[in-house]
């Protein structure tokens, strides 16, 4: 079985889809010779040529919109937004156009476009290059939102995103590009809307996304040494959400922590907490704990950045808080 990094896994899904299917093409800033700012699309221009691996000007709104237009004509474009922060520039097209064409036309049209982007802190770029904005898009009917945390998930979910007939915003986490995992020779599509349980446990469920899945797994290991058994579940697709998986896990453990890198307030975890408290109210033995970034923009100085974004010990502390409630 080949071992792929998260970066290679994304690239593998893209190149397989492009090899199989003339309708799939990619575009974005500096994705050709340079392979994108994170090297994800490296080599693709050599295999598929500049017509299908299109460098765009710095025009997020137009490139997102052009991808939408091509999708409405039957293509399956994958548009790369270099940094998640610049989704704000493309937001009009994604939120008002892509998400609504099907609806506004009374079901006449499909918009099978995928917007790939990446974000995440831990490298001190300052306030405009590392935000986590996934919750913005979870609020929009008509969009699907995916956030893989492992190479296998990235590959299988990107494939499904490309072949979904709806617009998908696909979030990659910058600090995960290097992590490796053995994956199957064959690409196995992973259906959108299916959570993955990374670790079984009895005492607490941690529902985590992105980088925090790995932080949660590290915290779970430490908790285990203290005799606390932690289940770690990654929804992987934030919209649609696999509510049953989350609720049934909490019904088993009776305690729940939600964890993501994005700011806690108004974050995706708030939605998860609402879903879980409603679905598992009678089973909960403690309030749901939330882990995420503190309420500030991302500061530059590393000591401050490190303080703002959550780490494994923040998850562990939340686990302690929830198990200490009687």
């Amino acid at each position: 079985m080949p071992e792929l990094s998260y970066r290679e896994a994304v690239r593998d899904a893209l190149s397989r889809a492009m090899r199989d299917d003339e309708d799939v093409f990619i575009m974005g800033e500096d994705i050709a010779e340079m392979g994108g700012s994170m090297g994800v699309t490296q080599g693709l221009v050599d295999e598929f040529g500049p017509e299908r691996v299109r460098n765009t000007p710095i025009s997020e709104m137009a490139l997102a919109g052009a991808a939408i237009g091509a999708a409405m004509q039957g293509m399956r474009p994958v548009a790369e937004i270099m940094y998640e922060d610049f989704l704000t520039l493309a937001a009009e097209q994604i939120v008002n156009q892509a998400a609504k064409h099907r609806y506004m036309s009374g079901g006449q049209v499909t918009v099978p476009v995928t917007f790939r982007t990446q974000g995440g802190a831990g490298w001190s770029p300052g306030a405009q290059h590392a935000q986590q904005l996934e919750s913005w898009f979870v609020h929009i009917p008509g969009l699907k939102v995916v956030f893989p945390s492992t190479p296998t998930d990235a590959r299988g979910l990107l494939w499904s995103s490309i072949y979904d007939d709806n617009p998908v915003v696909f979030f990659e986490h910058r600090t995960l590009y290097g992590i490796k995992e053995e994956v199957g020779d064959e690409l196995e599509p992973i259906p959108l809307g299916q959570a993955r349980t990374h670790r079984q446990g009895e005492d607490v469920t941690v529902i985590a996304t992105g980088r925090l899945v790995h932080e949660a797994l590290a915290a779970a290991k430490e908790a285990e040494e203290e005799g606390i058994s932690v289940e770690v579940v990654d929804p992987r697709t934030l919209l649609p959400l696999d509510e049953d998986a989350l609720i049934s896990s909490v019904k088993k453990t009776n305690r729940c922590v939600v964890a993501h890198e994005a700011v806690v307030r108004g974050g995706f975890g708030a939605e998860v907490a609402a879903v879980v408290q409603y679905g598992a109210f009678d089973w909960l033995d403690a309030p749901i704990e939330r882990v995420g970034a503190k309420f500030s923009p991302l500061p530059f100085a590393p000591v401050m950045e490190d303080f703002v974004v959550p780490h494994a010990n923040d998850v562990l502390e939340a686990i302690h808080r929830t198990v200490s409630r009687t």
Partner: peptide
């Protein structure tokens, strides 16, 4: 990333401010 910096460690290379001297901010968004 020091407090003595022109953005007091909050900004960094792409977010240099010096309001007193008429620099209303460097910008990381093109």
């Amino acid at each position: 990333g020091k407090l003595e910096g022109c953005s007091h460690g909050y900004g960094g290379s792409m977010h240099l401010y010096d309001i007193e001297r008429g620099n209303i901010g460097a910008n990381a968004v093109v």
